[in-house]
């Protein structure tokens, strides 16, 4: 042991800051989950607060609001997947067809850019564009239609979320697919050309099947993280009480009942429920992804 310590001791020392950070800020909060089973009193602390069994869960599951927020989360995540997943693949295929390198690089540089702009700033831009005297409403007005209050309209809010997310991420999303396409052997294309396949057929019968393993893998992983797919930054900066009905998701709901209203136990209960769903979905997705990659990629 002492020989091992002399040899490896330093390595443990170098691991220590990382281990301590993870222990304190990732594992210790897991202990805090017990307040989902307690009636938390800030004066009594986590330890001192009385146990209440599953009472918090009963309260939460009895709330109409909770189920509305659950439904919103599922529906919005599905919409995100439906539009946000195929869009970068299509864009990557189109970019791949561009022959002039400079033109291609310019377009790539431009469409990657919004990825780095934070949702705070994008919300600011959207407020400017969509306000009552903003660009969009003035255009509507000029064409003779009525102005629309985009940001307080329950029918407009979800399309707004999906479109703004596409604007921000579609370009960036192409990177991984473009890399996969670049890895396809040129001989395959040559063979197809000899057989008389035009570019559309090459795209359909060579490019798409070649990137299928990557696509399948990413699809499985996105489905796995469906309920944890972020969206908090975007929704939290764009929404307001008037669109809670269509736009309030679990993460924003937890934030409000927890930190704004100070109902710690209830917020933790909802969070725990969400975490359990996430965990099950993530582990399942990873298992499936491992199996698929075992069969397809290697």
């Amino acid at each position: 042991m002492s020989v091992a310590m002399r040899k490896y001791g330093m390595l443990y020392v170098m691991l220590l800051p990382a281990i301590v950070t993870i222990f304190v800020f990732s594992y210790v909060p897991m202990y805090g989950i017990v307040i989902a089973f307690k009636e938390f009193w800030i004066t009594k602390g986590i330890m001192g607060s009385p146990w209440v069994g599953l009472a918090n869960f009963e309260t939460v599951f009895g709330l109409k609001k909770f189920w509305q927020v659950m439904r919103n989360t599922v529906e919005i995540s599905m919409l995100r997947l439906l539009f946000g997943f195929p869009a970068p693949i299509i864009l990557a295929l189109l970019l791949n067809e561009v022959r002039q390198a400079l033109f291609k690089r310019t377009i790539q540089t431009i469409v990657y850019l919004p990825h780095f702009i934070s949702w705070v700033t994008i919300s600011g831009i959207l407020f400017v564009l969509l306000s009552n005297d903003g660009l969009v409403n003035n255009l509507l007005h000029a064409f003779g239609s009525a102005k629309i209050q985009f940001l307080s309209n329950n029918e407009m809010f979800r399309p707004l979320l999906i479109l703004s997310a596409l604007w921000k991420e579609v370009g960036w999303g192409t990177i991984i697919f473009l890399a996969a396409i670049a890895g396809v052997s040129p001989e395959l294309y040559e063979a197809a050309r000899v057989d008389g396949a035009n570019r559309f057929k090459q795209m359909l019968h060579i490019t798409l099947p070649s990137i299928a393993p990557v696509t399948t893998m990413l699809l499985i992983l996105s489905v796995g993280s469906l309920m944890s797919g972020g969206g908090f930054d975007q929704v939290f900066n764009l929404y307001n009480p008037m669109v809670y009905e269509s736009g309030d998701i679990i993460d924003t709901y937890i934030f409000r009942i927890g930190l704004t209203e100070g109902r710690y136990s209830m917020a933790t209960t909802v969070g725990l429920f969400l975490n359990l769903i996430n965990l099950i979905m993530l582990v399942t997705a990873n298992k499936i992804a491992q199996k698929t990659s075992g069969n397809n990629i290697y």
């Binding site: 990382a18 993870i22 990732s26 594992y27 909060p29 989950i33 307040i35 993530l282």
Partner: peptide, 22 residues
């Protein structure tokens, strides 16, 4: 074991409120 200790935190977390209280 140490690697697993790190990796597990990618799958589970304490959540917003416990972190806030900490």
């Amino acid at each position: 074991a140490i690697f697993l200790f790190f990796i597990l935190t990618m799958f589970a977390s304490g959540g917003l409120i416990p972190t806030y209280l900490l």
